[in-house]
Design a binder for these strands. Structure first.
Lengths: 255, 255
DNA sequence: CTGGTTGGTGTGGTCTTAGGACCTTTGGTC
DNA sequence: GACCAAAGGTCCTAAGACCACACCAACCAG
């Protein structure tokens, strides 16, 4: 109904050809990529990124492009750079970016829920597919990620175990598009359980993961989907507390 | 955590920092955008794109970038370009790109299923959300898209009505991420029902759409999800026939 | 046959990217 | 203390992407 410019006009011209198309600069793409990896916890606070020359080669970009990306991350407080023999690019404790993320989520009401609804769409179906078509071997990493959560100490370990679980499950579902979309969505969420003042609910998460794992292993697609949905809804509640909850409960870890 | 720089290995360096990061050229982005719109059927065979200067401005790019994109599309057989007063860029009958798409789907076994599983993930949850939070007014376009299918004549009209249904439903679900992802996934699928030799199953699609619509309107989230899943599974069967089925049934439309 | 619309082409300038050479800082080793 | 190696910091050159603008060439309607 919006298709035609006018009925009288003889031409089949489209009225509007849609929103603006943009291309990102390479440096921007690299910055986004690194930021996402930090959000997801692939690199933890205190850890060092590879040396510039090396990292640039790994990412397939020129060093100057990587440097520009690092400059952005440094401005936003994600990394610190030190020179010299044991220098390098180190991930900070992420307080400033975490606080900025929190402020943004508070401002942009609904964005957090949108991301979570998106994750629910992706991950419940991932659980369904994993239940249907997992192989014995593809479940091993999932199991390991569940077990890792049992013995976890500290936030970094918690986040990494959590992340590994979701990634391993996506891999068991054998769909690269789903896997990539899940990783991207998780990158937007800042994996903030361990970065913001909040005592991570290890027990609860462990129960949730185990429930998903058991259903998947049993081939129970509906059960897996429901367990995953329940898990993500609990995550939503936790995030609500983190973003909107009492700030005075703040309890930054000593280390 | 900060101190774990040393621990076995002297440095906390990450071994591999993941896959290569690339940036697309603007022309490439424009070409992808236009190709996707053609795949989705926003522009139909025989229709003319806006004049270069105008389209470039709409897309927010320089004319030369747009021209480069058009050159790509022309090479792939998507458009033909004519000069002169009633010249312009016209969408072809798409036989060559449709055949190329079909060949690719046959070669890359599983890609089609991956895309469809991805769509199922996105669209079943979209149906759930739409059932839960639709407004009266947001259902109007959905209803119109269902009705449009009833009176449809010809492939172009069929495809456009089909496309409008899915987009309208996504909008009723009020989640931009879902909406964009659905549009992108649909763009990959080439909406090939009307471009490849196949008699479109209007009745069946109409029934499916109506079932989804009714469930959404009734607020029946589970029913909407199941109806959508059934609809997409039927689409999968149709696509299987198109891609792998008997080629001799080929029956190209006169127009 | 002429004017306006449309694609086709060329020029000049700025920004991005790549790749490499060389400098500076720093911590550790001899 | 002198020196070395490893890291980031800086600078240069060349190639390509992108843009604005002007002008050319084809075409068709009036």
């Amino acid at each position: 109904m919006l298709q035609r410019i006018t009925e009288g006009d003889a031409r089949g011209t489209l009225a509007i050809m849609a929103r603006q198309v943009t291309s990102t600069t390479l440096a921007q793409a690299v910055a986004d990529h690194l930021r996402m990896r930090i959000h997801r916890g692939d690199v933890s606070p205190g850890e060092r990124l590879p040396a510039e020359r090396e990292l640039a080669e790994q990412l397939g970009v020129a060093r100057i492009s990587l440097r520009e990306a690092i400059r952005q991350l440094r401005e936003d407080g994600y990394v610190e750079v030190r020179r010299g023999a044991s220098g390098g690019t180190y991930v900070t404790e992420l307080r400033r970016p975490a606080e900025a993320w929190r402020a943004r989520m508070r401002e942009q009401v609904g964005e957090m829920d949108d991301i979570l609804d998106f994750r629910i769409a992706l991950e419940t179906e991932t659980a369904v597919l994993a239940a249907r078509r997992h192989s014995e071997s593809s479940l091993v990493p999932v199991r390991e990620a569940v077990d890792a959560l049992r013995d976890v100490i500290g936030r970094t370990a918690f986040r990494q175990a959590d992340s590994r679980f979701h990634v391993a499950l996506a891999r068991a579902a054998r769909n690269e598009r789903l896997e990539e979309a899940i990783e991207a969505a998780r990158g937007e969420l800042f994996s903030p359980r361990d970065l913001l003042p909040f005592r991570e609910p290890v027990e609860e998460t462990l129960r949730d993961h185990r429930a998903v794992y058991d259903a998947v292993r049993a081939g129970d697609a509906d059960g897996a989907a429901e367990a995953m949905r329940a898990h993500l809804e609990r995550s939503r509640q936790q995030l609500r507390i983190i973003v909107f909850g009492a700030e005075d409960d703040a309890e930054w870890p000593a280390s």
